[in-house]
């Protein structure tokens, strides 16, 4: 319950420029200098902060070293690994809620996890470097959900509506695809496609805060894996690259074999 409350408060707090939500304007205040450590479109009318992956692409496209974005990702990752994905990401929260719908469920093959590294190196890295265009933003479903949809709906002049075309409709298709995948598969986007998750995952084994398992207490009941929103087995691999440190497993463990703290 605390986990969900924090996720909801983070989603609201990050997008708390309510004037923008009602008037179709984009926040331009001082906090836009700061990058949030998660995926949250800076084009969203409610966004009070900048998107770190947008910032990263901006600098890669300009062929400059992205000191600030690298620093944000690295500092958050070094402190807590992928914890921001588990506690702060609104898109992660949406997927957690979609997975709760009572339908058939499917386990994603592990090989799909490579997709997020390909997205990071291929799209955010090489494609942006050589085209100087923010190609991940062009594909990002979050951008349509919290920026494209509300801003076009609130467009009073008709200028934005007039500009909608194949790209806009492709994004709608991508959003529908992501929703359809998130209902039967645990956090499909986070595990298979999110470049931010790919960056943080590298830090999961080095971070100051880490998950630990007491093998003497563990009865291998697999309740931790069943409750895990990323479908990892914390009792077998507590520093798994896909672990988002949501700590659902720590709360669920019947023998308290899992703990979280300074490694």
């Amino acid at each position: 319950m605390i986990h969900r409350i924090v996720q909801a408060l983070a989603a609201i707090g990050i997008n708390s420029y309510f004037f923008g939500w009602f008037h179709g304007a984009v926040y331009q205040g001082p906090t836009k200098q700061a990058c949030v450590p998660i995926l949250n479109c800076w084009g969203c009318p409610g966004a009070r902060f900048a998107c770190p992956i947008g910032n990263l692409q901006h600098y890669i496209g300009l062929h400059l070293i992205p000191f600030y974005a690298a620093g944000v990702f690295g500092a958050v990752g070094a402190a807590a690994g992928r914890m921001a994905c588990g506690w702060l990401c609104p898109y992660g929260l949406a997927q957690d809620l979609l997975y709760k719908l009572k339908t058939f469920k499917v386990r994603m093959p592990k090989v799909f996890s490579i997709g997020k590294y390909l997205m990071l190196i291929g799209v955010v890295g090489f494609v942006v470097y050589f085209t100087a265009e923010p190609w991940f933003c062009k594909l990002c479903p979050d951008g349509w959900i919290i920026a494209g949809l509300p801003l076009v709906m609130m467009d009073k002049t008709g200028d934005l509506k007039a500009l909608t075309g194949w790209h806009y409709y492709m994004k709608i298709g991508l959003v529908i695809f992501m929703v359809m995948m998130a209902i039967p598969i645990k956090r499909f986007f986070c595990r298979a496609l999110c470049p931010i998750g790919a960056i943080y995952s590298v830090f999961n084994r080095l971070s100051i805060l880490n998950l630990r398992v007491n093998k003497d207490k563990c009865i291998e009941c697999d309740s931790c894996q069943m409750t895990c929103p990323m479908d990892v087995a914390p009792h077998k691999s507590p520093a798994n690259l896909d672990c988002i440190r949501c700590l659902d497993c720590v709360r669920k463990c019947p023998t308290k074999a899992l703990t979280y703290g300074i490694k």
Binding site: W42, G54, N55, F67, W144, V152, Y168, M170, K171
Partner: peptide, 24 residues
């Protein structure tokens, strides 16, 4: 990065409607 002006640059890029993000 802040000393090099990254904060200001981030604000200027983040304060306009991102057409790529919107799908326009």
């Amino acid at each position: 990065g802040g000393k090099l002006g990254d904060f200001t640059e981030t604000k200027s890029v983040a304060s306009v409607m991102c057409l790529s993000c919107m799908g326009i």
